[in-house]
């Protein structure tokens, strides 16, 4: 037992920090660089258990909050989404060198996963903020 506890003591800090466990919600995020706005097109509620190990992504440019009916933030994530598309091609078919690049400003989509600890009906709103300048990109109802 002593050795088991000893192992746990050293092992637990090395396991990923799944700090946020609850029920899985998939949400389709749409970021529109042309209008500098973002919103969730759809929330997909599930009964699956989910522990979110991705609440603070490297290079995150958006902050997302879910807010309950009492105006309390119940979930917060920092995520990265591309703000445009790079259209690239090789110089010729046999080439391995990327040679041509065009920037395409078009809507970007991403499935964002949330771990929810409250019944879906208690979640009222979401807020999406650009992290670099704290601009509000979008807010709306969660339904």
């Amino acid at each position: 037992m002593k050795s088991f506890c000893f192992c746990l003591f050293f092992l637990f800090p090395t396991l990923p920090a799944y700090s946020d466990c609850g029920t899985l919600v998939n949400a389709l995020l749409k970021y529109d660089p042309a209008t500098k706005s973002a919103h969730f097109e759809q929330f997909y509620f599930t009964n699956e258990e989910f522990c979110d190990g991705g609440i603070n992504e490297v290079n995150a440019n958006l902050e997302i909050q879910l807010i309950d009916k009492g105006a309390k933030v119940i979930n917060e994530k920092n995520i990265y989404i591309n703000t445009f598309t790079m259209v690239e091609s090789l110089g010729k078919k046999t080439s391995k060198r990327i040679k041509e690049n065009h920037k395409q400003i078009e809507p970007q989509f991403r499935n964002v996963k949330f771990s929810i600890k409250v019944p879906p009906a208690q979640i009222a709103l979401y807020r999406i903020v650009e992290r670099s300048n704290r601009t509000l990109l979008g807010t709306g109802e969660v339904k």
Binding site: N26, Q42, Y44, E88, S89, Q104, P107, F109, N111
Partner: peptide
Amino acid sequence: INRNLTCHSSNIAREAAKNGI
């Protein structure tokens, strides 16, 4: 430019989110 490809992938994004991808 025919050698450059772009996809308007909102349909795929919806399908992926719906299926937890």
